[in-house]
Design a protein around this nucleic acid. Structure first.
Lengths: 224, 224
DNA sequence: GGATTTATGTCTGCCAGCCGACATTCTCTA
DNA sequence: TAGAGAATGTCGGCTGGCAGACATAAATCC
């Protein structure tokens, strides 16, 4: 579980990052708009300055699976870079977002001259592969309740800010989105979240989760 | 569906490949032995000359999920290269296999001087990410029957050899392994495979699948 | 070539969680 | 600030497929 992504480009010199970003053009995407969709040719990679991007996979039957979210200073659209394949997934802005898009060719050339960055990219890809692998195992071997607990714990560890015992999750998430992350239905997610609330494990304020007791949450893992 | 992996190192000059392989040492792994297991430090990458390697993820509860198989001329153990992380998955020889293992550090240095290969690695990682993404969607949105059909079709397209209407799948697979690839139980896999046999869709000879009628198989996708 | 392990085939009860349906409440937008 | 649209809460019936349990068949190993 929980191999955290080397999310920030902190490992990059400010200088290197500036060169990279100068290769692209910046633009704004209002909440809800798609940066790219499945089937399109993948001719750009993206660097997210501000906002939040949802990377998801849509089945022909219309079933959405959220693979992960990208936050500030993360890159996305990397999977298609080398060959310019069609996009396999969609990228949608969950909030108003500011993004630099870098043409594939320029990015590739950049990588050749900056092997350090190429390494970072491999690292990001590897890390995301692990996440997907973990998701698969969860999906197969855990029931919905456990999956939800693990999701909340993971989100807390990765994106939460601690205030005393309470962990604030400053991510606006609907029950539908939560359901799509763990492969269940909206109704089931609602029911379980309701239970957790009643047990004093968490509360939700304007679609933002507050983990009241990480301990209790952990406890749910032991006795299924 | 079905983005096929650039499996072979055909895109590499024979020369480049020779240099790469000279960095490592070759050894044999008898059927059943593990090349690496979860939790170990990932200090090598591997090139498979001959045999078949099963890459899988094991849940704490003991539930195995097979992520993919590696065949001749494919590499594996790539996910941990950049940082030397612990292995997240296990690699087990399904047949007697011959493998060259290349120390991480040497491989990394090699990559810096051969950006073309670095690109190839990214491509492989990207491709495997897609496969995992597809697996996730399948798992969530399809029932077991459909998942099995899709698996067989995919295996056929990827690894099958055509002889007239029949497609030979020269991969020795137990029902348990098939079940572990689509996230179901051995019993259910057995039952469904039995049905397919009775319908004349496929036959199994010494654990090797023969697709008798790809059409019929495809037909099962339309009417669930 | 016989014994032991490993894989296959089949049946059954049971229950997690899906699905539809609806009421209620929240949250944006105009 | 009203009104539309979206999100949440809740119920109950239905069922896919899991989990045992066991018999048989097929490999594999001395």
């Amino acid at each position: 579980m929980g191999s955290i992504e080397p999310s920030c480009f902190s490992q990059l010199d400010k200088q290197e990052l500036d060169i990279l970003l100068s290769l692209g053009t910046s633009s704004r995407y209002p909440k809800g708009t798609f940066i790219f969709s499945p089937g399109e040719a993948g001719q750009h990679v993206f660097f997210l300055h501000k906002g939040r991007i949802k990377i998801s996979n849509l089945s022909p039957a219309g079933h959405e699976v959220i693979l992960w979210f990208c936050f500030s200073c993360e890159m996305f659209g990397l999977s298609e870079i080398t060959r310019g394949n069609d996009r396999a997934v969609s990228a949608q802005a969950c909030e108003d977002s500011e993004v630099t898009s870098i043409p594939r060719e320029l990015f590739n050339t950049f990588l050749i001259h900056h092997p350090k960055v190429a390494f970072l990219i491999m690292q990001i890809l590897s890390c995301r592969m692990r996440v997907l692998g973990d998701m698969l195992v969860n999906l197969v071997s855990d029931n919905v309740n456990t999956r939800l607990v693990k999701l909340i714990l993971r989100l807390g560890a990765q994106y939460g800010t601690r205030e005393g015992k309470v962990i604030h999750l400053d991510i606006h998430l609907t029950h539908q989105e939560i359901a799509d992350m763990i492969g269940t239905t909206r109704q089931t997610a609602t029911t379980l979240l309701g239970q957790f609330k009643r047990q004093g494990i968490l509360s939700i304020d304007n679609r933002r989760i507050l983990i009241e007791s990480e301990e209790l949450l952990h406890g749910l893992l032991k006795t299924p």
